[in-house]
Design a protein around this nucleic acid. Structure first.
Lengths: 340, 340
DNA sequence: TTGTAGGCGTTATCAG
DNA sequence: CTGATAACGCCTACAA
């Protein structure tokens, strides 16, 4: 194995010299638009580039052209299927538009999210998409608005997914309506007495789903509310608490997301309470695993991938910032069988 | 609402002018290391920056400093929990090192992966980490090596996760050993006749797990091999096929990953074959949902987060590229109860 | 078709 | 401690 040349990455100058042409010609041959360069020279340049392993310095290009071809996506948690589906949609739309998407993870902290948006802004992406439920009252709201406003003022396109009430293009899922629909469906199946496992109401998504459920019930049923975490563990723990406290007064549980519902089912089962027989369970999001748990989980399907696509469409359109509201659809499964 | 100034993003010049100092001073006050600027001026500069909504142009910084503080992570699929755990580990280590990680999704296509590495290289990240099982015989192998070699020659750190046999720093999971351990554990539980649901052998991970399982059996059991996709659907379909064909000669199924195993369990159940009672089922990866399915899934735990951490450690160390091999641990659960 | 030169936003060097 | 000024790698009129 021969010793490789150590050293800095080859530049366009190196390529030009190697090919015996000027940098301008090299630039045109490699990245220029019009084919205004003699075929022979173009070949020499390409050959030289390949020989040297040259790759254009994107930062230099960005700075010279004054624009990039990237879209920045901020998500709360990569591990959450909710976000990966959105990411898939964004990715597809981006590819069609010839853009490259890079993802950054905020990890549920509004401060971190703000910091991310700030530094992302420094990269001058074409588009910034922020996903995830805003925490009401988190001190960072105004700063986030400032940050994104500055970004937009400088010509960037900012879009939010599932964060309402901010003055930007927004894609929302109809959490309220979906939950209301679920409530009606459960009433139709004969359920009357419910528990709702929800996250702290500052979490917008949770609150909307909770309120939507109550609205759908419209007084036609009783509800005990259990506050817990927005996670699988949260659901698990809420179920344990419910069992301990006695659940004679509840026929079905609505957990404001599927992972909570799945955690709850496991906890119920471990406590000897059989989901789907002794107690109904329903979630929200309709993630893939709903059909692989037993009993299959009733949920509210949410067009996540579509949300990603819509967000990109919004970002790329020249119209004024608007709101796209995506419908959510109730999917009844074995975890909430009709009651006699 | 007053009309905002439209226009390009403010630059350091703008800030300097606004603060009444030179660009050099402004630069030092905002991003310079040593505090060699008078307090009063520093304040004026910071105030001006805030007023203007200035954010340093990272590309310009990259070009001027000749280096970035980013690590690029290439994953096959965001939706796969396998990758999100690794990403979490990488993210943690990166944060500790003051680096920012951006993720790009290859979507299972070696060509796309190659193209990604190429353009990522153009961003001059400090580190490039590529995760996911290499496809043997995919034509892109040599090109990928070229690309990463060029990257390293220019001073970059390249690390691979779970792709052996490439001349770079590498973190691997002991797929072979883990599967062998699983085989021995199942033998110990009284199982003798197995089916293995595996992906096409070109997929390295699948092949290693398959072979490891056979090695662990060491002749002490029979095996029928079923080739299928490396996905939940693959497992589902393989199970259907097995049931149709008759499975009198198999007491337990080993699916080479958990999502396959979970898909298989659902298919079995739908066919009236009860996993854990009529047939044992085991997977690999020990993803979170193993404990939320019924029966809980026997699996082989893999230190994914640790893999991400190790990859960063490897990348940041100055030693020659080496290989870190992480052990995998058998976790027996209800899906493979001891046989009488 | 090609080359020269100026500029993009920042940092670093080197005098003041 | 501060301010010119030359890089950094690339693109793009403009001129040849």
């Amino acid at each position: 194995m021969t010793a490789m040349d150590e050293g800095p990455a080859p530049t366009l100058h190196d390529v030009a010299r190697e090919a015996g042409v000027s940098v301008a010609t090299a630039s045109r041959a490699l990245n220029g638009s019009s084919r205004t360069v003699r075929a022979e020279n173009a070949d020499r340049v390409r050959a030289a580039a390949a020989r040297l392993g040259y790759e254009p310095h994107l930062s230099a290009q960005a700075i010279a052209k004054g624009s990039t071809r990237t879209v920045a996506l901020v998500v709360r948690d990569v591990a959450d299927p909710y976000f990966s589906s959105i990411a898939a949609g964004v990715g597809q739309a981006a590819e069609e538009a010839g853009l490259i998407v890079t993802m950054a993870v905020a990890g549920g902290s509004p401060e971190r999210e703000l910091e991310l948006v700030r530094t992302l802004r420094g990269r001058r992406p074409r588009v910034i998409i922020v996903t995830g439920s805003r925490i009401d009252g988190a001190g960072t709201r105004d700063e986030l608005v400032d940050e994104l406003t500055a970004y937009r003022t400088a010509g960037g396109r900012a879009v939010l997914i599932s964060q309402r009430d901010l003055p930007f293009g927004t894609v929302t899922i109809d959490d309220h309506g979906g939950s209301a629909g679920l409530a009606r469906a459960l009433l139709g199946a004969g359920y009357r007495r419910f528990a709702v496992f929800h996250a702290p109401p500052a979490l917008r998504t949770s609150r909307d789903r909770h309120e939507g459920f109550l609205a759908g019930l419209d007084g036609a049923g009783s509800v005990v509310a259990v506050e817990t975490g927005f996670t699988r563990e949260g659901g698990h723990e809420a179920a344990r608490r419910l069992v301990e406290r006695g659940f004679e007064d509840v026929e079905a549980v609505f957990a404001v997301n599927d992972v909570m519902a799945i955690g709850a089912m496991t906890a119920f089962r471990d406590a000897g309470v059989l989901p789907g027989r002794d107690i109904g369970v329903a979630g929200f999001d309709d993630i893939a695993s709903t059909v692989d748990v037993v009993p299959a989980l009733t949920s509210v399907a949410v067009p996540l991938r579509e949300a990603g696509l819509s967000a990109m469409r919004l970002a790329l359109s020249d119209d004024a910032p608007e709101e796209i509201r995506l419908p959510a659809t109730v999917v009844l499964r074995e975890s909430t069988p009709p009651r006699a």
